[in-house]
Amino acid sequence: MFLAEKNIEHENIQIDLTKGEQMSDAFRKINPGCTVPALVTEDGVTLTENAGIAAYLEALYPEVPLLGTTPMEKAQIATWNWRCEMGGLMSAAEALRNSSPAMKDRALPGPKNIPQIPELAERGLMKLGWFFKTLDRQLSANKYVAGDSYSVADITATVVVDFGRWVKVTPQEDQTALLEWHGRMKARPSYKA
């Protein structure tokens, strides 16, 4: 979605996580950490973390700014993106990775097999519900997650809401600001990216 918002042309190679393609020898040559995404730059450097990829692309392609332009915007976007990652994505991942039979011994991403802890799945579900309440409050006072402008925090939060469906945690009917915002995000061309 970040690349689509900036209209950056790129080759997109899908890695099928359900088939374990991230564990293949071919992918380990790209990212020994066996995680996605991975961005191979024109210089041959591989970036493997969302924050680093976003910072790199924002520096190369400053228009449309997705990490903010003023010091305060940058701080607010970084804060809310971190909250979306920690409060939202990590909670959903904790629930999914510790409950899905398909992820037995894959409770954490990466090259090592890690056993599931069912209690962490329960905690993840609870935390994700709390996060949706926090996000609804934030969006009740703001057009976008981090303020008045669309940003990487909106991208991350959109992924959280969509990912939540995998663990059967969705925004509640009374979380109207969150539901309205998510409808606007789904209408963006980058949503289909």
Results as ranks from 00 to 15, higher is better:
41 T>M: 06
174 D>Y: 01
27 F>W: 03
126 M>H: 13
143 K>G: 15
32 P>E: 13
131 F>T: 13
106 R>W: 02
178 L>Y: 09
5 E>R: 14
140 S>M: 08
165 R>E: 03
158 T>Y: 08
77 I>N: 10
140 S>Q: 13
85 E>Y: 10
72 M>W: 03
101 P>V: 05
110 G>K: 05
148 D>F: 09
187 A>F: 07
35 T>I: 03
35 T>M: 00
74 K>M: 09
43 D>F: 10
97 R>V: 00
22 Q>I: 04
189 P>A: 10
99 S>H: 09
166 W>D: 12
40 V>H: 02
164 G>H: 00
145 V>D: 04
176 T>L: 06
73 E>N: 04
109 P>H: 01
112 K>I: 11
31 N>K: 03
37 P>Y: 01
80 W>F: 05
146 A>H: 09
179 L>V: 14
19 K>L: 06
179 L>R: 15
87 G>T: 12
98 N>A: 01
145 V>R: 11
111 P>G: 09
34 C>S: 12
123 R>H: 04
83 R>M: 11
69 T>H: 08
171 P>A: 04
110 G>S: 03
153 A>C: 09
72 M>P: 06
183 G>E: 15
87 G>V: 10
135 L>C: 04
135 L>Q: 06
12 N>L: 04
140 S>K: 14
147 G>L: 09
47 L>A: 03
137 R>A: 05
153 A>T: 10
24 S>W: 02
101 P>S: 07
51 A>G: 13
108 L>A: 09
88 G>I: 00
129 G>E: 00
190 S>K: 13
78 A>Y: 04
134 T>C: 02
70 T>N: 04
84 C>E: 10
117 I>F: 14
147 G>D: 10
82 W>H: 15
13 I>T: 09
119 E>S: 06
1 M>P: 09
16 D>H: 08
129 G>S: 05
113 N>L: 14
131 F>C: 07
150 Y>F: 13
162 D>E: 12
67 L>C: 04
168 K>W: 03
119 E>R: 04
66 L>K: 11
100 S>P: 09
99 S>M: 07
67 L>M: 15
104 K>Q: 12
34 C>P: 05
25 D>Q: 11
139 L>N: 07
144 Y>H: 15
130 W>A: 00
120 L>T: 10
8 I>M: 01
193 A>W: 14
21 E>L: 00
43 D>I: 08
152 V>L: 15
66 L>F: 06
138 Q>D: 03
23 M>R: 12
80 W>H: 06
37 P>F: 01
3 L>G: 13
169 V>L: 00
162 D>S: 06
112 K>A: 14
93 A>M: 11
149 S>I: 12
132 F>G: 06
170 T>C: 04
122 E>C: 10
62 P>S: 01
68 G>A: 04
141 A>K: 15
65 P>G: 08
113 N>G: 10
